[in-house]
Amino acid sequence: MSERILNIENLKVSFDTYAGEVEAVRGVSFHVNKGETLAIVGESGCGKSITVQSIMKLVPMPPGRLKEGTIEYLSTDITAYSDKKMQHLRGKEMSMIFQDPMTSLNPTMRIGQQILEGVKKHTGLKKKEAEEQIIRLLTDVGIPNPDKNMLRYPHMFSGGMRQRVMIAIALACNPKILFADEPTTALDVTTQAQILELMNALKEKFGTSIVLITHDLGIVARMADRVAVMYAGKIVETGSAHDIFYTPKHPYTFGLLKSLPSMDLSKETKLEIIPGTPASLINPPKGCSFADRCKYAMNVCNRLEPPENEISQGHAGSCWLLDERAPKVDLIKGEIL
């Protein structure tokens, strides 16, 4: 079995707001192996960012609160780590790149300095060596003339270039795991492809594991080894990319796939949307949170939360349809058999 870098068990994160407790993450479990890419997909607001940010303890607490769960990094329980202890992990062992490269770099600091900070903190390199390291990094991420460009400010770069700088910052100390929170959402399609390619290349080169958050299934298809599908603060289905794309078992996963435009023009298929809106995270429903929008919903779905059912090795889903007592359905035809 390959080495486990990260293991998350039953993670629950809430926000205390005036409107009440927002249960952003409601019992999420997953793991990440060495050198693999795990994609987390799901609708906006389902808790993807909060999940990964709580692993690095970047969620402001309060108003956030880690209610339950364990976070294991390289078999060490880091759930209760203080901010001080986390500082040694952040940037060195685990890194993050964010969605919007326009706002995630400090506008008043030269990019070289922004990379240098982390390098200096974690490696104790001398100034000269650190500078060489920065030039090497910038070359790795494809920034031309790194010796000149390291002295420039973020606003002098395009969005794609800034995201490359962000990647350089994140990979500066060769972390074992990289959280990429929608790293290409703010970029145009061509730049998007370049950045993804770069991430894949660097992953190969350094053996970094990647947790990739996205709601673009096209990106999942080209990047991910495994996929976790999130809905309303929970993972509803998880499996290899192949499992998820070819044998999805949760109606939500299936709905997501059907909402993907197909290039196959021979078939007159209409793009399908999933009707309704995601369940509220304040007082979430007692049963399955997708029941309201699910056309196969049974009585039990509204009353009890579905347990996780293993479908095959490494493929699991939380849906009552997977129970042996449930009627068999054909998700493609949309019929109950």
Partner: peptide, 26 residues
């Protein structure tokens, strides 16, 4: 609440370093 402060934190910088080199100037 700016994103770059989160970036700075994700680099592993200390709270005081973030305040000094990222927040005050901005």
């Amino acid at each position: 609440t700016q994103d770059y402060v989160k970036t700075a934190k994700a680099k592993g910088l200390t709270e005081s370093k973030i305040t000094w080199s990222h927040q005050i100037r901005n």
